[in-house]
Design a protein around this nucleic acid. Structure first.
Lengths: 344, 344
DNA sequence: TTGTAAGCGTTATCAT
DNA sequence: ATGATAACGCTTACAA
């Protein structure tokens, strides 16, 4: 059987609590060096590890934070998870990773599971604010700290948030494509299951209209988050198109950009000669494709830093519940690589 | 504050243990429908969730299993993790995912952390058997069940194992390349930090020698697991080579194959015209590259099935500690796609 | 310096 | 049918 503190104490010939005090190097321990040494030795010999269950029960915390990502297979999220884990571990917290499979229903399940576990804090990518406002409130009730990873909000966000603004990056991308002479655009938008496109098409159309491109020269193509869906959706779009094909594609994430490029290549469409492609995320993989993927980059390290910082602040100031929600804002940057070119 | 069972009982006007019995639908509960309904209602209203900490302490288990993967950024592992998670969740177990960053030292840390958490069972990719034989023994002591994901072992493996045999797949790959007329081979081998190449080069040389290719026409190139290392290592190899360049490359995993192909493309070497490439793993991504990646495929779903099955068997038969270790064996299969071709 | 005892939230045993 | 009570392993006053 697993060794308990009691066993360690017995073997060292002290009382249980004495062993506890010594092992935790509590300041009120005036135990003799000798005694302390005996206890450490006993713990070592027995391979003693404190029971997380007992610790959790007694201390009311597992020293663990949660991260819910939409997609375990998208490198942008695993990269972020990795970064955040390192930062939290440096401060003595474990990170539990859940993934919601790009499904709003399942996301709710993940968040519930996080709360169940009495995790100290959670951070997650907010796909739809309304859907989760009730979660945020419930989390607040069980005193689970939340840091939301979200788009920019106009009103002050009612919870701690790391806000990522893609708008300027997308605008820069469009303007860069216009400079290259492109006039026919496609916009591939990865949507979670159960998520609506919302006003994204309008935003896109509006942006182009302001720059002299009429609405009938733009195509808004909703698809799922995975490679296969991107390939199929964009492929079917290409096959079904009647007028002139788009010469420029902006994909809402790098992974779908890769899927779309495959669909193009299957149809003899060359990138970037026939089609310029810009993704979003700047996943490491993008730099290792035969053509390095042009992309709108998220500053992942800074996002992880900010997230860790906000979490740790709450974790360390558990008392001051009333303090104002904080937010950190970041902007995406256009990164031109090898999948964009002048229109032929 | 979070609602406790005591609160639910109070609100329903019953004793704590009665509430427990009812909520868990224990068979000895002869509670009246009325009482039961009241308890369920109270639990609902209070948003009652049992405390994992208390449950863990009382039941001695968290109904959780662990999976340690070498690399969170390699789709083959996240795919496996996803599959295993689904299967375990179907049987009421949560999956905790750790990644050891392809570092033998850190892997040990991960495994320790798993044991610490009083997790019921753990499965992990054995990179080096000797390094971890002591872990396996220690796990046995704390009655943490282990299923090892490992290469084929000659002697019966002393623990439950899912054995993956790549040898026949690699042989098939070599023979296929020979059929295509290749005579100069490179072998890119991803090694974990702290891991030795062992007899891999010899196995490789021997296999080719038996088929008429002298040793000086083979290159064994060790590298790390990541894209960047693969690109740099293979790039430097290409730059430094004096005699004829290899026309065939077998990379020990798809990710490094992608990195190596990038290095080739940067040097104007075309795939497959100038260089045939075969990876290992059959990651989904491989099918969405401009050239679909030829690969040696692991049957991931079957591996996940087998792993889940072995784990669940131990979990459900906690008593029969003495029963023999079991193993399930699988073979990799060659999958020819678009990155292999006749030598020009 | 060390020991005693209470308590964290739950389940299980035994009375009632 | 239901209720007291002990126990899981640990920390932390407080007493000695």
């Amino acid at each position: 059987m697993r060794a308990r503190l009691k066993d360690v104490a017995a073997r060292a010939g002290v009382a249980t609590n004495t062993a506890s005090t010594i092992l935790n190097r509590r300041s009120n321990s005036w135990a003799s060096k000798e005694t302390a040494a005996r206890v450490f030795k006993a713990a070592e010999e027995l391979g003693y590890k404190p029971s997380r269950a007992a610790l959790g029960l007694r201390l009311g915390s597992f020293k663990t934070v949660g991260l819910v990502i939409p997609d375990l297979h998208n490198p942008v999220y695993t990269t972020f998870a990795d970064l955040l884990e390192q930062r939290m571990r440096d401060h003595g917290y474990d990170l539990i990773l859940e993934h919601s499979r790009n499904d709003l229903k399942y996301e709710k399940h993940c968040l519930d599971s996080i709360i169940d576990r009495q995790i100290d804090a959670v951070t997650y990518f907010v796909s739809d604010l309304n859907t989760h406002l009730d979660f945020l409130k419930r989390a607040a009730k069980t005193s689970t700290h939340v840091v939301a990873l979200t788009g920019p909000s106009i009103e002050p966000f009612p919870f701690d948030a790391v806000e990522m603004d893609f708008a300027s990056g997308i605008t820069a991308a469009v303007e860069h494509l216009l400079d290259l002479g492109h006039e026919h655009f496609a916009f591939l938008c990865a949507l979670a299951k159960g998520q609506e496109a919302g006003d994204r098409p309008n935003v896109f159309n509006q942006m182009l209209k302001e720059r002299g491109i009429p609405e009938n020269q733009n195509s808004f193509i909703p698809c799922a988050h995975d490679l296969l869906s991107a390939r199929n959706t964009f492929g079917e779009f290409l096959d079904g198109i009647s007028g002139p094909k788009p010469t420029a594609l902006i994909a809402m994430n790098d992974l779908t950009a890769i899927g779309a490029m495959r669909a193009a290549s299957e149809r003899g469409i060359r990138v970037p000669e026939d089609l310029s492609v810009i993704g979003v995320d700047n996943i490491p993989l993008g730099r290792f494709l035969p053509r390095q993927l042009s992309t709108i980059a998220q500053p992942l390290e800074e996002l992880a830093d900010a997230t860790a910082e906000l979490m740790l602040y709450r974790l360390n100031n558990d008392d001051e519940e009333d303090s104002k929600p904080q937010s950190r804002k970041f902007k995406a940057k256009l990164l031109i690589k090898e999948t964009t070119g002048r229109v032929c």
